[in-house]
Design a protein around this nucleic acid. Structure first.
Length: 580
RNA sequence: GCACCCGUAGCUCAGUGGAUAGAGCAGCGGAUUUCUAAUCCGUUGGUCGCGUGUUCGAAUCACGCCGGGUGCGCCA
């Protein structure tokens, strides 16, 4: 659906082609850098001036004259050296709002070119507990899944589990040496990780242990029935525990195809690459070299088979890529992993090109989570923090705040709210930051009720819900169905206009977040919307509005803002609480 | 050694070719018999790491330097 900003864009394009005979320029229309200039600005005159060798100011004035005053904007003003500034008529905002307000998708169309997108995220090594390091991939990937689904794509969320790697050699050996069926049944992941750590330590000190672990792995990979049986037990125990965490985080997958699935395909993959001359033997290992077409990878070969015949992470990733292509007809694959794997994905993508695969491949990388000392977040003992414990602490801290502020609520309700606020705050702290950067983890900032935080957004949502509840109890039902009244635009409060402007621009934040795989654009938008709403809330009484039509219109603003916040939070994987 | 990422207010961060660089926190000063103050308003605070260039215009692009991080043939 068209909003004033779209209208301005189209008007400019129309003017370009009809009056200037230009179809190449794409005018940039954005909110004015300073509100005193107007609502929206465009730099089109600068773009054209360069090539046409004209004075930008003169061009801008010509645009202004041609467009003139119209149903959407007042007469455009030319500012600076050639900016064209548009001031939107309140009536145009109101019309756009009224046209959009009953749309369940809030005026956002589904894409006309749906793609099949595979998102590879979370992807932990199993037989070990999830730790902080898994948090970013898990929630970032989940948001990308939600976002692309909402925009109308076919999305396949695939948890590429590390269920076949070296850790199993250690765990198998550990279990055979110190195994305890009861302990395994009780706390599977903790127990398995304990075994892993123990053997890893022993292996560091003893070559013999190292060899034994390696042998257990080889036995597993060559189909030894005892080891396979144990492996199966370990995997299932791990998955059960993992699911608990995913459930707490409200993260869902369509598939959880681990590395073991691709294991049978690996010899064929290597064989094919050798045959095609893409790979060759080097120092006993099979390598892919990227000499000519990929200068950045010139001296960075990709090893796909070790001297001892074993396959690697890279080999599995190639098999996985081929699988996703042939079984799912993937048109785009997004890998959500930390930025240290950048080189690996450059190699993988380059190899895909060598194989003639030309689908969209993206590495959505992200930085590390640091402690307040700017070093990787660790426990006091120096071990990595378990995700399970991090979630518990977030919820506990939220509970303490709620317990303090809401003595009136039942115990169960307080727990529910603490859960949503704690987990939401944890997710939001991560998502609201540019993913490329490392970020510094701070409980204080996380659960603060001020600033760019989940609790602040939730609070705005809660307040609106409270108004809507009160309205409903006095007969205003769902404001979606409210009667058609005539709304006077000249009595609109500036904050009402601000609020309309804010809710109408929701779609741009979604498009940007999806295009750049960066949810923080959506967070910034929602934060601004919550701020604008709070201002409106301070200055414009809703239930106590001076006229009936004003009251109903303000209820409609509340309703639409509520739905926008609610959808935005849901896309971020945060539960939009109705009270807190 | 080479490659990539980062450097913006005391702190945490937005802003990646547009006008006078923004927010939050912290600090200071105000507002509440509330549509939930879990809020709002005002205010202090900047050689955008440094230098040179490209451009009508640079925090943003190019090159060089400084500082921090990450990666670089048998880990994932």
């Amino acid at each position: 659906m068209k909003i004033p900003q779209d209208w301005i864009f189209e008007k400019l394009k129309e003017t370009l082609s009809e009056k200037f005979g230009q179809t190449d320029y794409i005018p940039l229309v954005e909110p004015c850098s300073n509100p005193s200039f107007g609502d929206y600005q465009t730099n089109i005159a600068f773009l054209m001036a360069g090539q046409l060798k004209e004075n930008p100011r003169k061009l801008a004035e010509e645009f202004a004259r041609i467009i003139g005053e119209n149903s959407v904007t007042f007469y455009p003003e030319v500012g600076g050296n050639g900016f064209i500034n548009f001031r939107v008529k309140p009536k145009a905002y109101l019309n756009a709002f009224l046209a959009i307000r009953s749309d369940p998708r809030l005026g956002i169309e589904q894409t006309k070119e749906p793609q099949t997108i595979v998102i590879d995220f979370s992807s932990p090594n199993i037989a070990k507990e999830l730790h902080v390091g898994h948090l970013r991939s898990t929630i970032l990937g989940d948001v990308l899944r939600r976002l692309n689904l909402f925009l109308g794509h076919r999305v396949i969320a695939d948890n590429h589990l590390g269920d076949w790697g070296t850790q199993f050699g250690m765990v198998l050996l550990g279990y055979k040496k110190y195994g305890n069926r009861l302990a395994l049944a009780e706390k599977p992941l903790e127990y398995l990780e304990g075994l892993y750590v123990r053997i890893q330590k022993e292996a560091k000190e003893s070559e013999r242990i190292k060899e034994e672990a390696k042998r257990e792995l080889q036995k597993l990979q060559s189909g030894d029935s005892e080891n396979l049986k144990l492996w199966d037990v370990f995997v299932h125990a791990s998955l059960k525990e993992l699911d608990k965490i995913y459930q707490k985080l409200n993260v869902k997958f369509d598939y959880s195809l681990g590395e073991s699935v691709y294991n049978p395909m690996l010899p064929g993959v290597v064989e094919e690459l050798l045959q095609k001359g893409i790979a060759r033997y080097s120092e006993g290992a099979v390598c892919v070299f990227f000499n000519k077409d990929f200068p950045a990878l010139a001296d960075k070969p990709m090893i796909i088979q070790k001297t001892d015949g074993a396959y690697l992470y890279a080999t599995t990733d190639i098999a996985t890529l081929l699988f996703r292509l042939s079984n799912w007809q993937a048109q785009r694959i997004i890998y959500v992993t930390d930025s240290r794997q950048k080189l690996h994905f450059q190699q993988l993508f380059a190899l895909a090109r060598l194989l003639g695969i030309d689908i969209q491949l993206e590495h959505v990388s992200f930085g590390s989570i640091l402690g307040e000392d700017k070093k990787p977040l660790k426990t006091r003992e120096g071990t990595s923090i378990k995700l399970r414990e991090l979630l518990e602490e977030a919820v506990n801290r939220a509970y303490q705040i709620i317990d303090e502020k809401r003595k009136d609520l039942s115990e169960d309700r307080k727990k529910e709210i603490a859960n949503a606020v704690g987990i939401g705050a944890l997710k939001y702290a991560d998502l609201s930051q540019n993913r490329i950067l490392d970020y510094i983890f701070s409980w204080e900032k996380l659960l603060s009720l001020e600033g760019n935080t989940a609790p602040y957004l939730l609070n705005a949502h809660v307040r609106i819900c409270s108004i809507l509840r009160k309205a409903a109890s006095s007969g205003y039902g769902s404001s979606l169905g409210f009667t058609s009244l005539k709304f006077e635009t000249d009595t609109l409060h500036p904050q009402e206009i601000e609020l309309m402007k804010a809710v109408l621009s929701f779609k741009y934040s979604l498009f940007l977040a999806a295009k750049e795989n960066s949810p923080h654009h959506l967070c910034n938008y929602l934060y601004n919307l919550a701020k604008v709403f709070h201002k409106f809330y301070e200055q414009c009484p809703v239930l106590g509005a001076s006229t009936e039509s004003s009251k109903q219109l303000r209820l409609a603003f509340c309703d639409f803002t509520q739905r926008t916040l609610s959808l935005g939070l849901e896309l971020l994987g945060i539960e939009p609480l109705k009270e807190m």
